[in-house]
Amino acid sequence: MALASHAIDFRAVGQVFATESGPLTALDDVNLTIAQHEFVAVLGPSGCGKSTLLRLSAGLMLPTTGQVSVFRQPVTRPRDDVGIVFQQATLLPWANVLDNVTFPAKHKRGRVGSEDRERAAEVIAAVGLKGFEKRLPAELSGGMQQRVGIARALFLNPDILLMDEPFSALDALTRDAMGFELLKLWQASPKTVMFITHSIPEAVLLADRVIVMSARPGRIIADMAVPLGRPRDERALRAPEVQDFAAHLRELLIAKEPAS
């Protein structure tokens, strides 16, 4: 029943931005359904409207045409059951880890209660930052900062987690480690995840399904299940059928790269 219920629905969604050089079509006729507790990676070149897809789901913008629904309700404004992790951790530099994680409570309700602090301790431990509660962001590495960003998104216990290239600012080793950590988190407490990335290995490692988008205007050109069971480890990634799958994704992306 869980898999049957729709978490996010895009119906014939188009997005046009007004720019100085005329209208720019970011998304064109996007149809996509993400089931509850599904982990979907959206893969595409820069400027293909991946982030627009995420912001539409978050209710931070409304589509020019078509309709976006979350749990079968049309999205008309930001929702409480959606958490966002950005490309940069974008923490508050003056607040320590604990205050950054509880910031959504302070910002939304104006106060941080004791149950908020308990919840924060929970998510901080979940992302492996126990003992760092009093550190300022500047005292943390890039990977640890993004862990705080993830903890902040998990703090309000959203049903849907929207991640906008969350590991792209990290070095390759940290990036792999964070990927596995995210899988662990997701398996411990399943959520619907929309994971924007331009990294094929990352998409294959993390997702149940990979959506491939073309560059401007952003269209869905492929929607494929990842041929990998769970739990996953590095060895599984080296299996020949997984390698073939990754190669196929690469071909799709290269074919759609505009000739320069």
């Binding site: 912001r55 978050a58 209710g59 931070l60 404004r77 930001p78 409480d80 959606v82 966002i84 950005f86 490309q87 940069q88 974008t90 508050l92 959504p104 910002h107 939304k108 104006g110």
Partner: peptide, 17 residues
């Protein structure tokens, strides 16, 4: 950073905050 403004909007917090 525009992301923090988006975070604020996504939380539907009062404008003055």
């Amino acid at each position: 950073p525009p992301e923090l403004i988006e975070l604020s909007r996504s939380l539907r917090a009062p404008q003055y905050r």
